[in-house]
Amino acid sequence: MPPLAELTQLIVFALLAAAVLVGAIGVVILPNIVYSAFLLGGVFLAVAGLYLLLNASFIAAAQVLIYVGAVNVLILFAIMLVNKKEAMAASPGVGVRRLLSSGVCAGLLWLLLRVTFTTAWATPGPSQVGEGAVIRLGEHFFSDYLLPFELASVLLLMAMIGAIVLARRDVLSTDIATGEAVDQGLIEKSRTPLLMENTPQ
């Protein structure tokens, strides 16, 4: 595959960077959270485009599959499940808090940019593997990064079981297979709201 022309790369990078930044700001400040969630999907797609520009086709595909396909859909489901129009009571000092946090974030950004532009990066580095990146990734995963790779599978299993346990609604009152009533104590316990005293009705 011939390399993209330099100007094309620059233009594509500028478009993707603008999409990422504008989308991220939209995610944070838009009042309607459903728009935020869809914009978040756009940000993920633009980040995948940046990965393609960095010669990392496998990670770009993983980004689209995992972030856009799984995480974003999960967030949308969560929004649909908890989508209640609630008027959030105004809390005191919101303006001061926003001002302070904006100052902190601007300072952090200034620090990061200063580090970025004052460090003498050793570019250009070693030659690119280019299309052999997937092979190199596989070699890494099954040789020197084998332990973290296996730990990641355990982590995913733990997260899956934990999410099921936390989000399960309650126990069925009758067993689906036999039609008999199941243990009532379990049902009573699962229906008792845990934090009743602070819940405004």
Binding site: A62, Q63, L74, A152, L155, A159, V165, L166
Partner: peptide, 15 residues
């Protein structure tokens, strides 16, 4: 990416 996916699942379940 793996840890982020796990975090999103558990975080939304907690939510």
């Amino acid at each position: 990416i793996t840890v982020a996916a796990a975090e999103a699942a558990v975080g939304l379940a907690i939510l």
